[in-house]
Design a protein around this nucleic acid. Structure first.
Lengths: 214, 214
DNA sequence: TAGATTGTTAATCGATTAACAATC
DNA sequence: TAGATTGTTAATCGATTAACAATC
């Protein structure tokens, strides 16, 4: 049980296990061994068994793992059966796409509010939610008490907005802005989606790949 | 020089160095020591010096690092001064937002083509580029030889499209689809932007955070 | 020169892999 | 029971941190 602390490496693999098990379930596979799964996922069997045993023994010696049961256990570990309320700040190109594209419900969240500072957007409906004026944020949060927020705002406004949200009790941030929130507050949880960083990493890898026929 | 191989951990930190140095430059800072930078970024000074020394000695004993020079060196290491041609497949909500939102030029790429299978989108202009019919993909690629592609398509079509692109010579993928490309081909470079995985990781962290006032 | 800070080697820490006894 | 595969401990590997001599 690693003293209750789960390493970041393990956390990042959990959603992938969940996805692969879901596909196996769909294709009618009901049991799988760590070795078979490792081949499908490009990992070692050892690693899979180590990862799972951070949370308990879900398998059976001589048999392997029950696909449906294991997927549902991992879903539970990830908290996908929760429904934490979440608001989204910044309904530009990106924010709109995130609001429309993401299945929040199946990931443990519920999107309950959209905010933007641009008057022309206020009142528009996106995914059955009205875009609200950012100056109604305090009021909305005091009423609805969301604990998590998606930030789709430019990095210039990220510091100010995140401070405001922090004061309103928001502690979980899904951060699409190129600003490092985690440096300002210690007691928050941040997941970064840094498009630019990812594209730069792709550039680096392309430029440094050996035996890549380009 | 680590035998020429740069670890993934280092690669992921490079864009962040680049960003921080850019901000320092903007705020008029011309020199910085590894210790100062480490405090700003929440790293150790040791780590910064180790990372940089994978690529050479950019500092000066007793002085530190020249901000502008170091940023430009890292930009060069990342290949941001390149201009690799890139196409984008799937101009739905997400693809459109990516096309409009990302500054490809400053990240070492040039977006030269947009493709979708939906007739109603074909011909529309996005970012001064016409959306092309996916059935003209072969022709376009044979003419323009892009080596990289952004995939903003549902996972159902990811396997087929990636095989087609691979045959056309594409070897770098910026992958927004929930499909694991790297399992099908060995000699490609993939950067994944898995929204769902990230949101699930956020869910896990929120549900497992101790001393988080929620 | 003296002080500061790098580049680099050595020590530590953590994550992955291998091995195997337990057990279905 | 025999075969298979887990759960778990031990060994290895790699990444981070600490230390310090080199040097500006």
């Amino acid at each position: 049980m690693n003293n209750g602390v789960i390493s970041n490496s393990v956390i990042r693999r959990l959603p992938r296990y969940y996805r692969f098990l879901g596909e196996l379930k769909l294709s009618g596979v009901s049991r799988i061994s760590s070795r078979e799964l490792s081949e499908k996922m490009g990992l070692t069997a050892s690693q899979i068994r180590q990862d799972l045993n951070c949370f308990g023994g879900f398998g059976q010696q001589g048999y392997g793992y029950n696909v449906e049961m294991l997927q549902s256990e991992i879903g539970h570990i990830l908290g996908l059966d929760k429904s934490q309320s979440m608001i989204l700040i910044g309904v530009g190109n990106l924010g709109r796409a995130v609001a429309q594209h993401i299945n929040f419900e199946s990931k443990g969240f519920q999107l309950i509010g959209l905010f933007d500072c641009k008057e022309s957007l206020v009142g528009q409906m996106v995914r059955n939610l009205p875009i609200r004026n950012i100056n109604t944020l305090d009021e909305f949060c005091r009423e609805n008490m969301p604990k998590t927020a998606v930030l789709c705002i430019p990095k210039e406004s990220a510091k100010q907005i995140s401070e405001q949200l922090y004061k309103l009790g928001v502690r979980g941030f899904w951060n699409f802005s190129h600003y490092d929130l985690s440096l300002d507050f210690k007691d928050i949880i941040v997941e970064n989606m840094h498009f630019g960083d990812s594209l730069m990493a792709l550039s680096f890898k392309l430029n440094n790949a050996k035996n890549l026929e380009l």
